[in-house]
Design a protein around this nucleic acid. Structure first.
Lengths: 234, 234
DNA sequence: CACAATCTTGATGCATTCTTGACGCAATCC
DNA sequence: GGATTGCGTCAAGAATGCATCAAGATTGTG
């Protein structure tokens, strides 16, 4: 589907643990730009951070100084379905059952492997992200909703043909950058059309007629003479 | 084929394991009417059962006689998001990571406590059930009651065939979004019908005749030429 | 075993979309 | 300044996709 991995908006992770060593360990393990990290040392701080930072996932230790971790899960579950992965030294089955039934999504007993933790985080994110995130491109009056596959200009819905939409999608996902004729042709019409820029011009023209107010002086799709086209923005 | 999500009907669980002892153990542990159990001994049987029985959750052993469990996960994930919990003797971290990244939702190493397994099953079911948050879909005169499996237009009840209802349900649960032909075909007719969009068109046509006032100019099910169909709404 | 409902498949007419060619215009090169 | 090249627009035939009807196959049910 989409080929561009969006590094601009890394998933937010809230780490809740009172031990500094553990937090530092997780910070190095989860760092590196793949995630945006927030930390909390107490249950109350965790509740506040969950509300303010809106994490995409919570890593929760059960042994907190001010309140029991199970209680933290319950209180969060009263208003948020955010995935919660429990990290705890308690390995008794009753502890696991209590945490899971309180609303936790997963339970790892310390010590755990960092690779396994990362895999479980990916599994959780995969479940929520496949429904959630709404990548919508906006530029002045133009709005391209890549999830719902909807395009509108100044509020009015615009109906595009499959190739027109593919072309627009390609431009939008590379907004600001110049796409060469060759790159576009290869991508949409396949290799073999490299020497036929005409089909591309026709489609750009049709696309402009549908989304540009004045196709002869385009606001969105600018042509870069001798090179290719560029979607404005960024 | 029918997916009677009545509250009276217990969640369906598919157990995939070649060892008779394990299956018997799970049968007693999960029995008692709380769940409806299906079983498979091989990977191929598991794939067939997943398509036919439409389980709400799959318990999968990785050591199958005919194919690797990881491969089973991948093949199921090509067309179904059903929760998969891996039960395996392999306790190496790389095995866990491979299974989770292939699309598994959880991983338990044998031997495990039955209470923990039940808790993890409850956690998985809770997640999927909360996604079906809207029990009844309304749009202008159309009303689709997903709990009682009833459809009405302007107050008059409409009788749909099983496939028609499944199709409508799929569209309604993704209201606003475009569902591609391929996605619908895979989901309702199974993979293998990917290259037969005709059956889909016939059913869309029949469905429209039953719920649309003017099937030639549909209000609810809009066709996205070259792409798929979309239930209006949101 | 027979009946009814449903599903599948084929055929047909219609609408949309794609492709290709022709032509005007602007910028560039010599 | 004239020729060349690249770009944008228009239009028409070809190709594809869609909706609908109808008939045979399948399934379920009593």
């Amino acid at each position: 589907m989409t080929d561009e991995t969006d590094m601009a908006n890394p998933p937010r992770i809230l780490v809740v643990d009172d031990e500094t060593a553990i937090r530092r360990f997780l910070r190095t393990a989860l760092g590196g730009g793949a995630f945006s990290l927030h930390e909390a040392e107490t249950g109350h701080a965790a509740l506040a951070a969950a509300a303010v930072a809106r994490p995409d996932i919570i890593l929760l230790d059960l042994g907190l100084p001010d309140m029991d971790g199970i209680e933290v899960i319950r209180l969060i579950r009263e208003w948020s379905p955010v995935p919660i992965i429990v990290l705890s030294v308690r390995e008794r089955e009753t502890d696991k059952v209590a945490a899971l039934d309180a609303g936790a999504d997963d339970y790892l007993t310390k010590p755990f492997g960092i690779a396994e933790l990362l895999a479980r985080i990916r599994a959780s994110l995969r479940r929520t992200l496949q429904e959630a995130s709404e990548p919508v491109f906006r530029l002045e009056g133009l709005e391209v909703d890549l999830v719902h596959r909807k395009v509108s200009v100044d509020g009015r819905d615009v109906q595009l043909t499959p190739t027109e939409y593919e072309l627009l999608r390609l431009l939008v996902t590379h907004a600001g950058k110049v796409l060469t004729h060759g790159r576009i042709l290869k991508r949409i019409w396949g290799i073999g059309y490299l020497d036929q820029p005409h089909v591309l011009r026709v489609n750009i023209s049709n696309l402009r007629r549908k989304i540009e107010a004045d196709p002869s002086r385009p606001r969105y799709i600018r042509t870069e003479p001798g090179v290719g086209y560029r979607m404005m923005g960024e």
